[in-house]
Nucleic acid binder design. Structure first.
Ligand code: MN
Ligand code: MN
Ligand code: ZN
Ligand code: ZN
Lengths: 136, 136
DNA sequence: TTCTAAATGAGAATGATTCCCATGACGTCC
DNA sequence: GGACGTCATGGGAATCATTCTCATTTAGAA
């Protein structure tokens, strides 16, 4: 489910795309398109907001970034390791840890087929308070 | 974490609140505030959109309804059984099945404390295609 | 270099949700 | 029952993340 997407034409290499990529890679946790746009601005990089939105969405679709939806509804991106995994996100500082739940995936398939559901997809993110934020 | 919330004053009983409650209870799957407002309209019930938004959000906060965020970002509500559980939602027709993942909760606590995270909360929803929708 | 399709960006548009605030209606205490 | 303070309502404006429009630029192939 991650290797069958063949985009006819790879995206063109532009200054904007390169700058967006390095901005995203410089992050620790998740950040929204606007966060990234602001950060780039602050660092002297001039890229249109619409381009940041478009590019991040495209990179996520291509599997180069992970996208989550924050509790208040915004979409946030982060570079991530290949392969399926989930995240443990600090509600306070945004620090993110990648986690895998070996047992979960099988569990999911079983339950889904028990209910006759197919083409299953799941969205699982954990939100908590990280160590540094709970005891400063 | 579900029994300690004591609201000082229970909400007043109004025609609007009663009508919204029955509209929600008549649903099979999840529906957004606008969906419910439309349905009520269609059924001859006149309630302001803002009131539907406020009331559903309040009922969800009070634990009377479950709220999820659909893949396209909207908030949807549904009456639900008491106790912690998750949902299996059909991407096509919206039909929803409640599921429990007995092993997951313990798994979550373990992993969270391994990473030093506390006050953990998790949001897990499954989206798939139900039996009726995949082979009609 | 030439040419064309893709990418960019500034601003307008969209759309879900929330805010504002004047008006109406619970619930309580006479 | 009636008076009253408070909460609830609703219509429309406001918000705000995201998407769209479209004129202009540019990557990349030939
Ligand atoms: Mn990741
Ligand atoms: Mn439920
Ligand atoms: Zn933290
Ligand atoms: Zn279905």
């Amino acid at each position: 489910m991650t290797s069958t997407e063949r985009s006819a034409t790879p995206p063109r290499k532009t200054r904007q795309r390169a700058e967006i990529r390095s901005a995203v890679e410089a992050l620790d946790g998740f950040a929204t398109s606007q966060d990234i746009h602001d950060r780039m601005r602050h660092d002297g990089s001039a890229v249109g907001l619409a381009t940041v939105y478009r590019t991040l969405a495209a990179m996520a679709t291509a599997g180069e970034l992970d996208a989550i939806r924050t509790p208040d509804g915004q979409v946030a991106y982060r570079t991530c390791s290949p392969g399926h995994h989930h995240h443990l996100v600090c509600r306070t500082c945004g620090r993110t840890e990648e986690i895998t739940l070996p047992g979960l995936e099988a569990m999911v398939r079983t339950i889904a087929s028990d209910h006759g559901f197919g083409e299953l997809d799941h969205e699982l993110e954990f939100f908590g308070i990280c160590g540094s934020c709970s005891r400063p």
